[in-house]
Design a protein around this nucleic acid. Structure first.
Lengths: 306, 306
DNA sequence: AGCATCGTGAAGCTAAGCTGAACGAATGAT
DNA sequence: ATCATTCGTTCAGCTTAGCTTCACGATGCT
């Protein structure tokens, strides 16, 4: 099996361009380097260096190997750093989080902030991502934590080798232009909104499906879905500017949405559950991130937590 | 520096749960394993194993280390595989491509197909991505090739440490409902389309900017931008179903778009350049992918290639 | 031409890393 | 309860990987 020490020598020779330079930098004699590289070439079964004048240069195979060498050596460094942190009793590691937009802003971002203070040795990487893409990525170790959502009555299938934990449940609100007549009341009968133009997510999404279901079951009409975007903030903007209505969860509305009226539907309660997904076996770092997400979720909608 | 060989022993012990088992599996005496693990613990500065009954189990630190060990050992395996392929005169490696939607379908997908035949040792990973996100990802080695676009008159800044190569130039077409009166002529005067509702990408995107510019400069009017989506296929669908118009590049239209009329603007020529971005130093594998993308781009719009 | 500097090979030494035997601890059978 | 078995660890001893030193031929600068 390939030896890391030899790879380190190869990398040094690549970086300095000369065997003597590498030897000086690493505190060896040039002969030692030369011998080790000869062994490496024998193992590789192909020349890695070529003499160019009185110096050496890497061959194509050498370049390939040195590229892998740097990633491997970086990996060793990361391993040592994490090990040192763990040995000192701290929780460490790299954790990759995926989340949909509104959870990203209201839950993940605050969680990252508090994690930076509580667990400085955890490196958090986060990306906006849809739930559908998450399961394979989780299983392939490309992702460690996914924050997903699920509307009442539209449960998502979860693979048994993944662990699911509920973060919060929020209410779906009717968002209307401020001057809409129905906005006068505290709770708005959905049935009164049959003539409204609506903004919702693209067809095929959970939100769109929820929207249609709410209009049918609570309002008894087929909604005029005129504007589509998967970006909730754009939907909100569409309400403000075009006079359309929207059905948006609390997380999107945050502390308050200026320029629009936010009401609860009069006929019933529709909600959305936000949950997190991890692999069954959690490293301490992943567990710490999951905890941070839970407390951040609590703070995001404290009045809605049941 | 941490030694891979010792890590391999640790992983084996973790997998089998017993020192003897690991020794048998690897062809060593139990004593050898025990001694090496003792050295590893001394290097780590913390216990990695704990005796549990007459067996051993990894401590938390041991788990951390074994997790890194597996990724490192996998990396070594990948290095050896690529090296073997390169030594045999073939081009190998992992290449990650990013591309925007239409290029993804018309250029990247065919290129992947031909690469699978020409260079079976190249593993291509591809993701839909916007150009703006590409530059940092390229520099961080998270991405190897990006396929981006640029509308005439709206050049994109490119960092000097990245290499840019032109793939193709395509024309922007006026896409109308089939029954629209202006669709009768071969070339459509944009000025005649002032009353049309339009579908375009979200504000802030290059496409949106191009759309407004074309209407102003060629047509002399301010467009009624009624529908927005960053998904070109949705824009096309909006034309088909809502009777709106759109300005779409050739790649989106592909071989032909049923149910809509595709025309050139009468007043002038507007185009979009599709290019690829890589780091300045290309590995052979990246070079091969770049070549494949170029030929695929040629085939995608042969009549438009200048 | 002369000299410094390069990479490499041979000889020799140190220590890393293996084996095998011996030992205490834990488990299961009798 | 007791004995045999199996576990992990330790110690002595040996092999060899990997280092240094020295020597040599090749290359480039002055």
């Amino acid at each position: 099996m390939m030896d890391l020490h030899r790879l380190r020598l190869l990398r040094e020779v690549h970086g300095r361009g000369t065997v003597h330079g590498a030897a000086r930098a690493l505190g060896y004699s040039p002969s030692a380097i030369s011998q080790q590289l000869a062994v490496l070439e024998r193992e590789a079964g192909t020349p890695l260096l070529e003499r160019i004048g009185r110096n050496v240069r890497l061959t194509a195979a050498g370049e390939v190997l040195v590229r892998h060498a740097t990633t491997l050596l970086d990996g060793v460094e990361a391993a040592e750093a994490e090990l040192a942190a763990v040995a000192a009793g701290r929780v460490a590691g790299v954790v990759r989080i995926g989340a949909f937009q509104s959870a990203f802003i209201r839950v993940v971002a605050p969680a990252i902030r508090s994690l930076a203070a509580a667990h400085p040795d955890i490196r958090v990487e986060a990306a906006e991502l849809e739930v559908e893409q998450a399961a394979p990525a989780l299983r392939l170790q490309q992702l460690d934590v996914m924050v997903g959502d699920e509307y009442d009555g539209q449960p998502r299938a979860v693979h048994t080798d993944l662990r699911r934990e509920r973060l919060l449940r929020e209410h779906i609100r009717v968002v209307l232009p401020e001057d809409h007549p129905a906005a006068a009341a505290e709770r708005v009968p959905v049935a009164n909104l049959a003539d409204l133009a609506w903004a919702a997510c693209q067809p095929g999404t959970g939100h769109r499906e929820m929207h249609v279901r709410v209009c049918r079951e609570l309002g008894g009409f087929e909604p005029d879905l005129r504007y589509s975007s998967d970006d909730f903030l754009i939907l909100l903007e569409l309400v403000r500017t075009t006079g359309a209505g929207a059905l948006l969860p609390d997380l999107v509305l945050g502390q308050g949405a200026p320029g629009v009226a936010v009401r609860l539907p009069a006929e019933g309660d529709v909600g959305r559950v936000v949950f997190l997904l991890t692999r069954r076996t959690r490293t301490p770092a992943v567990a710490a991130v999951a905890d941070a997400l839970k407390t951040a979720a609590n703070r995001a909608v404290p009045d809605l937590w049941e």
